[in-house]
Design a binder for these strands. Structure first.
Lengths: 195, 195
DNA sequence: AGACGATTTTGACCTATGTCAAAGGAAAAT
DNA sequence: ATTTTCCTTTGACATAGGTCAAAATCGTCT
C-alpha cells in the first residue's frame, strides 16, 4: 500500500543519520503524519511558530524569507531525492514566530512530525537525540558553506557551482526561484545563463 | 587560586546551556586544559583537523578563512564576555581538515577540551548531549542570522547593526578585523565611519 | 626618542550587479 | 481557442562597493 512505501523510504532516510533498529524505527514513524499539497501552497507563514518537521517523499519545498524591499530570498530547498528532511529550523528550535516561509514548488507529498512529538522522542530515545544532533550538524555545515559561497564567489561562480554540484536544482526550479536561491536578481540570472 | 576561578567561570557558562548538577560539572571540567597565548597566535591552521573545543576566559579569538584572492573573512568572534564557547565547528564536527583558521586577537587565556573527550562525554553523560545540542542550535541560529544580514543589509546597515547590537566588538577589534567580519574592505569601513 | 612596520584614511577610478521599463513567451484559466 | 497572468529576456542606466596607490597616523621595538 502507498503509505507503506512512504514509511519505508522515511525509515531508510532516518537510518542514514543514526543507527536505529527496527523497533525504534517503528516507534518513530507512528508520529509522522502523511499529507499532500498542491503546488505553491504555503505551509508556514512569517509570524507563525513552526511546529512541524518534514520529510519530503515526493515533490519540492523551499524555505525563504522576504527582505525589507519585498524581495524573496530562498534559504533552503528540499527535494524528494535531496535534502529531504528539514524545516524552518530557527523557529522550530526556538519556538518563536518564524521569519521564514515554507512553500511547495510542485505538487508535494510529505510526512510530518509535530514539534512536541519530536522533542518527546528526544527525551525518550537516545538514538533520536543522536539523529537530531546529526541533523543540526548537517544544517550548520550547510549554512556555513552557503556563507562561504556568498562572501567569496561572484554571481557567475555561484551559478556555475550549482550547475556543477546540484544540476537537478536548475532543471527543476524556475529561474525566479533559482535566482532568489543564488541571491541575485532574475535579470542577472538571465544574463549569466546566456554567457 | 587562579585556575579555580577559570573553572568556576566555565561551570557558570556551561550551566547556561544545560542543567548540569555539581557532580556532572566536576566530571566535565577535568577534561578542560588551561592554556595561555600571546596576541596574534594561530591556534588552528587551514588543512589541520580541529580537535579542540574552546572556552575563552580572557581575551579575544577569531575564526576566519582566506578566500581565493587572499582576503581574510572573519566568521566568528569569541570574547571573554560574549560567545565564549566555540571552535572551528565544521572541522570539529566532521574531523576533516579545516578551511578555517583560529587566531588570538589579544593575549588570551582559554580552557580547551579535546575532541575525543568531548565525544566521550557525549556518550557517557546525557546532559552533555543536551549541552552539545544547544551549542549546535545556537551556532545554527547565529549562522542563519548572518546569512540574513549578508543578503538583506547594505554595508552601512551591517556596520550600524554591529554598532547597536555588539558595540564592544567595535571597541575591541581593529578596523581591519572588523571590516573582514562585516565582509567589506577596510577602505569601505573607513568611509562608512566618517558618514 | 627615533625609526620601522603596520594600520587607517583619502582620492580617483572601475566594475559587477541592481533598477526600471518594456517586449516576448509560456502556462493557466475561462 | 482566447484571454489573462505570470515568467523570462533585453536594453539603458545607476550605484554600492571594490581596486590601486599614496599619504597620514599609530604602535612597537631598539
Amino acid at each position: 500500500m502507498y503509505v507503506k512505501r512512504m514509511i519505508d523510504k522515511l525509515k531508510t532516510v532516518l537510518k542514514i543519520f543514526a543507527d536505529f533498529d527496527e523497533d525504534e524505527l517503528d516507534k518513530i514513524v507512528v508520529y509522522f503524519k502523511q499529507k499532500a499539497f498542491k503546488k505553491n501552497t504555503i505551509l508556514l507563514k512569517e509570524g507563525i511558530i513552526c511546529n512541524k518537521f518534514y520529510f519530503i517523499y515526493k515533490g519540492c519545498v523551499r524555505i525563504f524569507f522576504i527582505d525589507k524591499n519585498g524581495y524573496e530570498k530562498t534559504r533552503y530547498i528540499m527535494l524528494d531525492n535531496h535534502m529531504n528532511l528539514g524545516t524552518a529550523l530557527t523557529s522550530f528550535i526556538s519556538q518563536n514566530p518564524s521569519i521564514e516561509y515554507i512553500e511547495t514548488l510542485e505538487d508535494t507529498e510529505i510526512l510530518a512530525i509535530d514539534h512536541s512529538d519530536f522533542y518527546h522522542l528526544n527525551n525518550e530515545m537516545l538514538n533520536w537525540r543522536l539523529f537530531y544532533q546529526r541533523i543540526l550538524e548537517m544544517a550548520y555545515s550547510f549554512q556555513s558553506s552557503r556563507i562561504e559561497h556568498l562572501v567569496t564567489l561572484t554571481a557567475k561562480q555561484r551559478y556555475n557551482n550549482v550547475l556543477k554540484e546540484s544540476p537537478f536544482l536548475i532543471q527543476r526550479l524556475s529561474n525566479r526561484i533559482l535566482a532568489s536561491y543564488l541571491d541575485i536578481r532574475e535579470e542577472t540570472l538571465s544574463r549569466l545563463k546566456s554567457k
